[in-house]
């Protein structure tokens, strides 16, 4: 999993819960990388789940809530870090339809063999956008947070409904419609 996710997670956690909480979480999770993350690195995804669980135990916020909040924040960071991805895109739906291609290039440019999550989309007859996340890693909560961040970034009234395809967070369907 790309380092930017880890680096941004620690930054947000520091800002929200303080240096001491983050340090305690790192010591408990004891990640192989020693949590010395660089955004251009590549780390095993279980380091993130371990850190989330350790932080959750320390601050008393459920892990899925931490990840959704983080995803929401991460999307806003993407708008600051990758402004080029947003040129010419005016709606959340347009962006979400193109997101798979963006992930593909941004990850593959550094890691040609990286295993990528799949975001497929279909526009349903009732006008809703159906976005399906599927991955070998259990981060449907992160996808939910990112989608929420995206909807907020572009503004407008949208409804978002999530249906888990598998209970382990590896696959979920998101229905986005005009509210």
């Amino acid at each position: 999993m790309k380092g930017i996710v880890f680096a941004e997670f620690l930054e947000l956690a520091e800002a929200r819960f303080g240096l001491e909480a983050v340090e305690t979480a790192i010591q408990h999770a004891n990640p192989a990388s020693n949590a010395a993350y660089t955004s251009v690195g590549n780390y095993h995804h279980t380091e993130l789940t371990d850190l989330v669980l350790a932080l959750s135990a320390h601050v008393g916020v459920p892990p899925n809530q931490l990840i959704i909040t983080f995803g929401h924040h991460l999307f806003h960071r993407f708008t600051e870090l990758y402004p080029k991805l947003f040129i010419g895109t005016t709606s959340a739906v347009d962006f979400l339809c193109s997101v798979h291609g963006h992930i593909h290039v941004e990850v593959r440019k550094l890691y040609p063999d990286a295993e990528l999550p799949v975001f497929s989309h279909t526009r349903r007859e009732d006008g809703q956008l159906e976005l399906t996340y599927s991955s070998t890693r259990p981060f449907a909560d992160l996808a939910e947070g990112l989608i929420k961040g995206c909807l907020e970034h572009f503004g407008g009234d949208y409804s978002l409904r999530r249906e888990d395809i598998t209970p382990d967070g590896r696959s979920a369907r998101f229905l986005i419609g005009a509210a």
Binding site: T38, S39, V40, L81, V105, E106, R108, K109, L110
Partner: peptide
């Protein structure tokens, strides 16, 4: 400084890609 180096690598690797 780390963030600048990371941004540079992101940009250059994208060009290379």
């Amino acid at each position: 400084a780390r963030k600048q180096a990371e941004a540079l690598l992101e940009q250059k690797s994208l060009e290379l890609y």
